[in-house]
Amino acid sequence: MPIGCRLSFVLSEHLQPRRRRSGSGPTRPARLTLDQLRVFVAVAEREHLTGAAHALRLAQGSVSAQVRRLERALGLLLLHRVGRNVRLTDAGRAVHRLAVATLEQAEAIEDLAAGFREEDHGEVSVAAGLVIGAHRISAWLGPFVRAHPRVDVRISIAAMQPAIEALSTGKVDVAILGTAPPASNFETISLERTELVVVVSAQHALAGTRNAMTQLAQHRYLAHEHGSATQVHANKVLGDLAELSPTIELEEGALLAALHTGLGFAVMPRAIVESDITAGRLAVLPHRGHAVAVVFTAMRRPGMQTPVVQAFWEHLGAMAAM
């Protein structure tokens, strides 16, 4: 038999998977590894086992063994020996092209992971309640964004229940609302405590009126958007008084402007309108009963967080402590 034929026979026999003994379970195919691909690419580019071994700082026997394992895993002959050198087979050239691309992608994944382990890279997504989104979120985010210029921040403005659902399902990393849901499993930070007040423009007919609350039915009620945490608590302040008034439901950005024009009365977190009250642009209507307190609350799911989300959470905690 010609030598070439015998070598071909021996190599093809070598590439067949080893038979397992009967009763030892199903045969599992050999799996290729990134290390095998790295060694194969080094050999293919140098066409020399010893040169690849020097470049990789490995023993030549280890390089040969890795190539053999790769050939066995693929069931293909990848290299021809030509004297002291090696040449790629047709299959070897095709595998080499894909191996180079695979190793580049693997390196990109490692670089991406390294970036996400740094707190100044990555993304943090926040669901803000309607009132929070209109009046607070920008001021709270500003210092964090300036300190982390490479971080992407995605903000969605939502009513209370959709924001909680987005947090529960992992669509957002943090939710900031006008109240914390009762009996939740979220980690929380109390960012700001305030109370709800009934306010009108300083030029409104109710401003400075005695027993103004008994006259609400004669004036328009400027209601927050449906689903707002503030609107839920507003009912505790007004009781059934608001039901007697004609109502205008406004988006948060428009509600404060409507107040200033004297369009009607509204229930607002005092912290949101404190500057307007102090400046005399808005007036607080006295009401009977206990004050209704609200707490602007940040929430997140318990468990491991990415470094950038953890950095944002610590930023919120520092703001709460101020």
Rank of each mutant, 00 (worst) to 15 (best):
L206C: 09
V237E: 08
P181Q: 05
V232H: 15
A205W: 06
V43S: 14
Q36V: 02
V86N: 07
V237G: 06
Q36A: 10
H233G: 04
L216A: 11
E249T: 15
A175M: 04
T306F: 01
L244E: 13
Q218A: 15
G92W: 00
V10N: 06
S275K: 13
A205K: 12
P269A: 14
T33R: 15
A202D: 12
A183M: 14
R68S: 14
A223W: 01
D152R: 09
M304Y: 01
H54Q: 14
E192V: 13
R220C: 11
I248T: 12
L32D: 12
P269S: 11
L56Y: 11
T209L: 11
G253F: 06
A139Y: 05
A30P: 09
S62H: 10
L74E: 08
A134I: 04
A217L: 08
R210F: 10
A298N: 05
R150I: 00
S22H: 12
Q66C: 08
E252P: 12
L98I: 06
D35V: 08
A101H: 04
R57T: 11
P286V: 03
L37T: 08
N185M: 01
S245N: 13
L177T: 12
E165T: 14
M268Q: 14
V267T: 03
L49R: 07
T214R: 13
L256D: 08
L7M: 11
S22R: 14
A298L: 04
T188M: 04
S22E: 15
R300L: 00
Q231I: 02
T194W: 11
V124W: 03
H135V: 03
D152P: 00
E118A: 11
E243D: 15
A139L: 07
P182F: 01
V267A: 02
V151E: 06
Q161M: 03
E118N: 11
A293Y: 10
S184T: 09
A298D: 03
G61N: 15
V95C: 02
A223K: 03
R69E: 15
T278V: 12
I109K: 08
D35L: 09
E123F: 01
I132H: 05
L250V: 07
A159N: 03
L167W: 09
G178R: 04
N235C: 01
R117Y: 01
A53N: 08
A134D: 11
P302G: 12
G115I: 04
E195C: 10
L244T: 10
Q36P: 03
A229F: 12
T188V: 06
V82H: 14
G75L: 13
A53W: 07
S62W: 04
T50V: 13
S190C: 07
L112V: 02
Q66L: 07
H96Y: 04
